[in-house]
Design a protein around this nucleic acid. Structure first.
Lengths: 232, 232
DNA sequence: ACAAAAGTGTTCGGAATACACCCATGT
DNA sequence: ACATGGGTGTATTCCGAACACTTTTGT
């Protein structure tokens, strides 16, 4: 047993951060899970995370743990919710501040270890029973991105640099869990003027090749300052 | 010095909850502040809150502190955000989970102590410099209710049982910080069918007396289940 | 009679929706 | 030639925005 040398007048819960990382592979929405090496919930899957250091802000802690456990770095994360039910961790009272992020799978899939490792992408509808209360965490995170994608073009975070309009539509359909009309979707998404049509098409596809587009980040930043509104 | 008898292997931040409570007096949007009795920030105003007990969930802690410090009870609160910058509390690392709520001023103004006490309602545009990072907390809370009132009829939480359409409109205008067209506002708010017109009018007003309405809570609950959408 | 806020309808333009066929490519 | 998904336009409906006068009360 290690020495317990940090003492306080009143009891304190332990504080952790966890990250829900969403990715998209042009087909399926996925989340990044790690397999726990130790008890509690040894060998079960969970969101990457861990204890916050004493002089580290919450967001930094979340990013650090994410990097340590999965190799992902330079990720833009946002705070989602704080879970603190007594009893959610069998080791004692643990309060977890949850962050979430959307990443381009293509940027990261190498590091995360495809399946042999202990960090893996799971399709959103093939998630195993998770450790702790992470099922509830996932539910909350899905709710958040659904709400968010409708009025902010966060979808681009999930796609590669170059993408086709069908890929983008597919992404929206997967996140919102409903189908969208192709012509109306294109009309609306193009009307934002946030897409730049590239002089490049798909290759080696057995149908009319789709044009690639990229997201106009600069323009989006400008619009944000002016109080941008948008609605899928 | 008290004995420090709670010891851990690793250092732990202290955990607190605070509440941002909004009220509305038919005229002005207000928030409930308490005046701190002790250092740090002795005599400065802050949101009510305090340390979380070890076996208490976060929401319960927030409500308990709110009751102890202001007398408010039976308040429906929602989690807003967690603040945890090192240095935000001069006593050491403190992480605060912030909750917010909207309450009917009429239900509560007695308990809170009008001005002599150490809990007071402050008009939103007459807030003093607050303790800790509570300025940032308030900013975040205002952002949240602005975003929320547009697509959820939370305004009713702030009004008395019976209210006039002008009061309701005034509330929306104060929260959104913009004026609304009277006819369009009424059309839209009535089209939700969530208001019940009462057989009762204002009295002793030097103009055409306004009709009172009340909010149809049952119907709203039903609509929520069916996935209600609405937009001011 | 006057002041003050309540209450009420219509018009117009733009956005949302619904909908079907031709195009370019690989096999 | 055929199968596959890409790409495109129009008509209709619905919703948001703009806008001004009459009503009821107290003084």
């Amino acid at each position: 047993m290690r020495e317990k040398k940090y003492c306080y007048e009143y009891p304190r819960p332990a504080l952790t951060t966890d990250c829900v990382i969403f990715g998209f592979d042009s087909e399926k929405l996925k989340v990044l899970l790690i397999q726990r090496k130790f008890d509690p919930f040894k060998n079960q899957w969970a969101f990457p995370g861990g204890f916050v250091d004493m002089n580290e802000n919450l967001e930094t802690a979340a990013k650090r743990e994410l990097y340590e456990e999965t190799g992902l770095e330079n990720v833009y994360i946002e705070q989602l919710f704080t879970f603190g039910e007594p009893g959610r961790d069998p080791r004692g009272r643990v309060v977890s501040v949850i962050y979430y992020a959307l990443v381009k799978l293509s940027d990261y899939k190498i590091h995360a270890g495809d399946d042999a490792g202990d960090a893996r992408w799971f399709e959103i509808d093939k998630i195993p029973k998770l450790a702790f209360d992470h099922d509830k965490v996932l539910e909350k995170a899905l709710e958040r991105i659904k709400g968010k994608i409708i009025y902010q073009p966060i979808g681009f975070e999930l796609l590669p640099e170059k993408f086709t309009l069908s890929q983008l539509q597919n992404l929206y359909e997967k996140i919102l869990e409903k189908t969208l009309d192709k012509r109306n979707f294109r009309k609306k998404i193009l009307s934002t003027k946030l897409l730049i049509k590239l002089d490049e098409k798909e290759q080696n596809v057995a149908h009319k090749p789709a044009n690639f587009y990229k997201f106009n980040t600069e323009k989006y930043q400008e619009l944000l300052k002016k109080g941008f509104e948008f609605q899928i």
